[in-house]
């Protein structure tokens, strides 16, 4: 019997180029406070959010994904035709099938790239980077386009006081490719489905078929806060340890932008030195689910707080419950 062949890839993978696309409109706290009988002060104190970005009605989640992807590919210095794999994390593409990824691949000129969507909510960007890292190093893929794209405003209820007022629309993308040196640490990931009801939609599609209202997002805020604030810090630290580093080696901590108070509590739990800069884009962009980490990363570049070659610790966490963290070298 002839031995079959398998792929073998480069020893290392890296992030090559980042791209983002924010919703076109800046939505203030005053704009969303009325239907939830709240105020600018309450929302700021409770969440650290001043504004969130939301897309025009005729801007689709695919449009946002395309804009971010084109920027990421340009920044990576490759051609779209070289992308052989497209992974999109989204929970707001309004079709169960076909997925967004094949359409995106075709739009940007990457056909016949392998293309699939993943549903890992606010952890999706880090999940997809974990997949892409493994695909490149196995030799299965050479250039993987990872995208987190969400139009959350299609699935919100303006009168919901639990999560809707936090949410924004955006996409973030990164190209993952071969590297001569270590540049993506081991992904520490996991799930806890016993918490599946803590962040969810108000109805399944079958319930909608049977008369339920269009599904919108809800969360058990305090319980999610407790989980994220006190259980995600140790996960982030494990990612640092798995990469053979210590918190002193990390230049930037870029957590999912869920709530500024979760970010503050995680920092306290992890005990970073003052030299670590922290992604806090939530103040202006809101919670954009799978797009929030690349948005916060782009913001740190724009503010001159990070540069190519810095170590960043990123962690996503959210509905599932699911979580994923890894240390990366910034492109």
């Amino acid at each position: 019997m002839t031995a079959m062949k398998t792929t073998r890839g480069p020893e290392f993978a890296r992030m090559m180029g980042l791209g983002v696309a924010r919703g076109e409109n800046i939505v203030t706290n005053d704009d969303v406070a009325g239907p939830i009988n709240s105020s600018d002060e309450w929302i700021r104190q409770r969440t650290g959010i001043s504004t969130r970005v939301r897309a025009n009605a005729d801007t689709s989640v695919l449009d946002l994904a395309e804009r971010a992807s084109r920027e990421a590919i340009a920044n990576a210095g490759i051609e779209s035709s070289q992308i052989d794999t497209v992974i999109v994390s989204t929970i707001t593409y309004p079709r169960i099938t076909p997925g967004l990824s094949p359409r995106l691949a075709d739009l940007i000129g990457a056909t016949p790239a392998a293309a699939w969507d993943i549903s890992a909510a606010c952890a999706g960007y880090c999940y997809a980077i974990g997949q892409a890292d493994a695909l490149v190093r196995s030799g299965q893929s050479t250039y993987v386009l990872v995208v987190g794209a969400e139009k959350m405003s299609d699935f919100i209820d303006p009168e919901d006081r639990t999560i809707s007022f936090l949410l924004g629309d955006a996409a973030g993308a990164v190209v993952i490719g071969p590297s001569d040196s270590p540049a993506i640490g081991p992904t520490i990931w996991g799930s806890d489905g016993s918490g599946a009801e803590l962040i969810t939609e108000t109805a399944s599609w079958l319930e909608v078929r049977d008369g339920a209202a269009f599904p919108t997002l809800r969360q058990e805020g305090p319980t999610v806060y407790k989980w994220a604030s006190f259980q995600m810090g140790p996960v982030a630290l494990r990612a640092v340890e798995a990469a053979g580093l210590t918190p002193d080696d990390i230049r930037a901590f870029i957590p999912h932008q869920a709530n500024m108070r979760i970010i503050d509590q995680m920092i306290k739990q992890i005990g970073f030195p003052d030299s670590v800069v922290v992604g806090r884009d939530i103040a202006d962009s809101g919670n954009t689910s799978a797009a929030s980490i690349p948005l916060a990363t782009e913001r740190l570049y724009r503010d001159g707080l990070v540069k190519s070659g810095d170590y960043a610790l990123q962690i996503g966490f959210g509905a599932g419950l699911v979580y994923a963290a890894q240390v990366v070298v910034l492109p």
Binding site: Q45, G221, Y225, K226, S229, Q265
Partner: peptide, 11 residues
């Protein structure tokens, strides 16, 4: 004390 601070205190 709001509900988030309460969760911190509880933890």
């Amino acid at each position: 004390i709001d509900s988030l601070s309460m969760m911190t205190i509880v933890t």
